[in-house]
Structures are given as C-alpha cells and as structure tokens.
C-alpha cells in the first residue's frame, strides 16, 4: 500500500499562524502532531512499510508500536478524503 494525497489535497505551511494545515477543495483542517508526522512522510513513493520504518527510526521507537499508530492514522486520513491508497 502506497498512500498519496487525494487530488486537490496538499499539506501547506501556514506561516502566519505557525502551523501546518491540510488544504483540500473548499475545506482545510489542522492535523495533530502525530498525523502531521505521517503526512510529511507521504510522497507517493514510500509505501506503508517505508513510512513505518522512517518514523520508527526518527522517533527511535519499537516498530510494532509505530505500525499500529500509522495504520490507524492512515485509515482516518483516507476516510477524511485527504489520502488515497
């Protein structure tokens, strides 16, 4: 599974408010810190395993723990229309 942003959806740095936002057609939302870490790994090339590996390394955390979090977040972001797989 290789997640990518849905058409018309992108992550944008909101400089004025010092935060990242997910911009989508006629709506936007502010991802929480964990969701943001996942979204920053989504480049259309990394598959699910590569994203989990990347985050496990970045946070020096057990892979199983990261894997559960990432799967849950990806499901949620797909359900919200931000990502497609």
């Amino acid at each position: 599974m290789t997640p990518r942003f849905a058409p018309g959806v992108r992550l944008h740095h909101d400089v004025a408010r010092a935060r990242w936002v997910v911009m989508a057609p006629e709506r936007m939302f502010v991802p929480d810190e964990t969701a943001l870490e996942v979204l920053r790994m989504v480049d259309g090339a990394r598959d699910l395993d590569a994203i989990i590996d990347g985050l496990a390394e970045k946070f020096d955390a057990p892979r199983e723990v990261i894997a559960g979090d990432v799967r849950g977040l990806l499901d949620d972001l797909v359900a919200r229309g931000a990502l497609v797989t």
Binding site: H12, D14, V15, A16, R17, V21, M23, M28
Partner: peptide, 8 residues
Amino acid sequence: AAEIGCLQ
C-alpha cells in the same frame, strides 16, 4: 494576501 495569513 499570503503575507497577512490567507491560505486560499
């Protein structure tokens, strides 16, 4: 617009 905070 972007400088004062507009996102879209």
